Simulated scan of single mutants.
Amino acid sequence: MRMKLAATAAMALSALPLSASADGEVNIYSYRQAYLLEPLLNAFEKETGIDTNVVFAKKGLAERLEREGRNSPADVVMTVDISRINELVERDLVQGVENQTLNQNIPENLRHPEGKWFALTTRGRLIFTSRERVEEGEITTYEQLADDKWNDRICTRSGKHPYNIALFSSMIAHHGEADTQAWLEGVKDNLARKPQGGDRDQIKAIAEGVCDISIGNSYYYGNMLRDDNQRAIAEQVRLVFPNAEGRGTHVNISGISLTKSAPNRENAIRLMEFLSSAEAQRIYAEANTEYPANPDVTPSGLVAEWGAINPDQLSLQEIAENRNAAVKLVDRVDYDGE
């Protein structure tokens, strides 16, 4: 029993076929990096005796599935971000799963209504503030990011990045397009610089005094704290769980879908069930400083030290359906412009 891994660039994917017919295996296409999956899949193989084969890529897996069609060897796709997961649904590349174990382990708002995807972990889209220049409790909601008091004090990555699009989509779901546009215009007016870089770069910008506030995923902060070269930078910011006293903090997910071809369907569903279990949820969440999707599993390690998160109960599928409207708003307010 040994996990087989093919780490590839998207352009090289077609050169790395997987066996589609052997018994006792499951074939995985993954956007998640190998080191995150290895402990999980080793535990699955030990428990079930089913071998796992993994193709990893940074992009291009949906296109590969489309190209391979019904002859694809892939049984499941593991990926991150609700927009990317929903792309598989929109391209008709995945099938629904009606499974009691999965439905019991994964809350309704963190799975597709027809079982076409299931969340495995969640990450909060948090506000980071300077410990020196922003008082604790001075900002507590996403809505307050548009307040005039933060003029020239906010840094973010591109408004078109999927993580921000998901947040903006959730704002549309809660407030409607017109109010979200007004809010987004206010956030843009408060930017200290043109949107750039990734979530870690926004934390670095706070440490460097470029801005006082940023938006970012919780796991980036956790991974910085684990990095000896970045810990001192991360320690200069304070975590804020927006809207914790109200509707809850917006969360995004990593998730899994069963492909339409799924030559090893039964084994694939056993893997999906295992990944939703308490044992796997603890391993997976702790490996990347994320929150378990299974509400019966408590966070551990660094994540537990941050305190409880009150996640927004809005359906992630509803957020995905607002994606196009959110992209148009970003263009309309020229969020990424000077």
Rank of each mutant, 00 (worst) to 15 (best):
R2G: 06
L16R: 13
L18P: 05
E25P: 01
V26F: 02
I28A: 01
I28Q: 00
Q33W: 12
Y35V: 09
Y35W: 07
Y35K: 08
L36H: 12
P39V: 07
N42G: 15
N42M: 15
N42W: 15
A43H: 13
E47T: 02
G49R: 13
D51F: 15
D51E: 12
D51N: 15
V55R: 07
A57F: 10
G60E: 10
A62W: 15
R64C: 07
E68K: 03
G69N: 05
R70M: 08
N71A: 07
V77D: 01
D81Q: 07
D81W: 00
S83N: 11
E87C: 07
V89M: 03
V89F: 12
E90K: 02
V94F: 11
Q95Y: 10
V97K: 06
V97N: 08
T101F: 15
Q104T: 13
P107N: 08
E114K: 15
K116R: 08
K116E: 00
G124K: 04
T129L: 01
V134A: 07
V134S: 09
V134K: 12
E136P: 00
E138G: 00
T140I: 08
T141A: 12
E143H: 10
D147G: 04
K149E: 09
W150F: 05
R153N: 03
I154P: 01
C155Y: 02
S158D: 02
K160L: 12
P162Q: 06
I165S: 03
G176L: 15
D179H: 05
V187M: 00
N190F: 04
L191N: 00
R193M: 09
R193H: 06
G197H: 03
D199H: 13
R200M: 05
Q202N: 06
I203F: 12
D212N: 02
I213M: 00
S214E: 03
I215G: 00
I215L: 03
S218M: 03
Y220W: 08
G222N: 10
M224N: 04
M224R: 10
R226E: 14
D227G: 15
D228I: 03
Q230A: 14
V237K: 01
V240R: 00
F241A: 06
E245R: 06
E245D: 11
R247I: 13
S254N: 08
I256T: 08
S257D: 02
S257Q: 11
S257I: 11
L258E: 05
T259Q: 05
K260T: 11
A262V: 07
N267I: 07
M272F: 06
M272A: 14
E273H: 14
E273C: 08
S276E: 10
S276W: 09
S276D: 07
A278I: 14
E279H: 06
A280T: 13
Y284T: 04
Y284S: 05
A285H: 01
E286H: 11
A287R: 10
V303G: 06
V303F: 07
G307F: 05
Q313G: 15
S315E: 11
L316W: 02
I319W: 03
N322E: 02
N324W: 10
A326C: 04
K328T: 11
D331Q: 09
D331M: 07
V333H: 01
Y335M: 02
G337A: 09
